[in-house]
Computed example of a mutant assay.
Amino acid sequence: MNLTSSIRSAFTPQGALRASINLGNPILACRDADGAARGVSVDLATRFAALLGVELELVVVDAAGKSVDVVVSEQADIGFFAIDPLRGEHIAFTAAYVLIEGCYLVRDDSSLRANEEVDAAAHRVVVGKGSAYDLYLTRTLQQARIVRSPTSPTVVDTFIEQGADVAAGVRQQLEADAHRIGGLRLLGERFMVIGQAMGTPKSRGEDAAAFLAQFIEEMKASGFVDEALARHGIEGASVAPAA
């Protein structure tokens, strides 16, 4: 990787590398016992800052939409997002480094048994506001009504409180909530596969975007991403194939 002073400057206009970390996706990040952010995205941000030879500052948020906003507004220099064409208007994405599953959750006594039954006018589907699931289902659901929870981790609680029909989100988060609450089940199959990528504002230039893309490919090829998933006990997510 050919790191030039102009590329370093493109990523660090404030001196340090500011990385947006979204705690709303447990696959990517969470808080440890001391309250500090930890996870695969934090590990990647730390490694990238070391590559640039600069200090790292974490901009920690609780929802995907907020993470996008701080990068688009250039309050952060890099972020970790599900790839989506709407977000791609202002953010230059790498290829995916991790693939995760989006699933539906219903009550045990729900008549729903398959994904294709969800999109009906009588159904309300709860998603995290601004999440990849929100963006995707807004485009694809034709009849069901979408209800937006403030963040992805609050989706199931909102689903229960509002008596909605379906909750949509990261498989692992839904499974954990089903275990916590009881009386809930996942529909059998995923409704989407989400590619999680790194991104930087397009204003930082093509050379910076290409450098970040190369960094992600090396992190996948070297085993760093796979080791990070194992280190943080992440199950049900897989390293994305080479671009």
Rank of each mutant, 00 (worst) to 15 (best):
83 I>M: 10
191 F>Y: 13
43 D>S: 13
143 Q>I: 07
79 G>P: 02
1 M>N: 15
56 L>C: 04
94 T>V: 14
219 M>Y: 05
114 A>L: 10
7 I>G: 00
209 A>G: 09
153 P>H: 02
184 L>M: 06
91 I>L: 11
176 A>E: 09
41 S>C: 13
238 S>F: 09
186 L>N: 00
87 R>D: 08
169 G>C: 00
162 Q>C: 15
11 F>L: 01
137 L>W: 00
120 A>N: 02
76 A>F: 06
171 R>K: 09
198 M>N: 01
147 V>W: 05
119 D>R: 04
154 T>C: 08
189 E>A: 15
77 D>I: 02
243 A>H: 15
28 L>I: 14
1 M>F: 15
49 A>H: 04
89 E>I: 14
200 T>R: 05
174 L>F: 05
224 F>E: 06
192 M>P: 08
178 A>W: 03
235 E>Y: 14
87 R>F: 05
153 P>N: 07
192 M>L: 10
157 D>Q: 12
154 T>A: 13
85 P>D: 13
109 D>W: 10
201 P>H: 13
216 I>R: 01
104 Y>M: 02
150 P>W: 02
199 G>V: 04
40 V>N: 03
116 E>S: 15
208 A>H: 02
141 L>H: 01
18 R>N: 02
165 D>R: 00
161 E>N: 14
26 P>K: 04
28 L>S: 13
42 V>N: 01
46 T>F: 04
144 A>C: 04
110 S>E: 05
121 A>T: 13
208 A>R: 00
35 G>Q: 07
167 A>S: 03
29 A>Q: 02
104 Y>D: 03
177 D>H: 07
212 L>I: 08
29 A>I: 05
44 L>H: 03
42 V>E: 01
74 E>P: 04
31 R>L: 09
172 Q>F: 15
62 D>Y: 08
181 I>F: 09
185 R>Q: 02
127 V>D: 00
101 E>M: 09
73 S>N: 13
51 L>G: 10
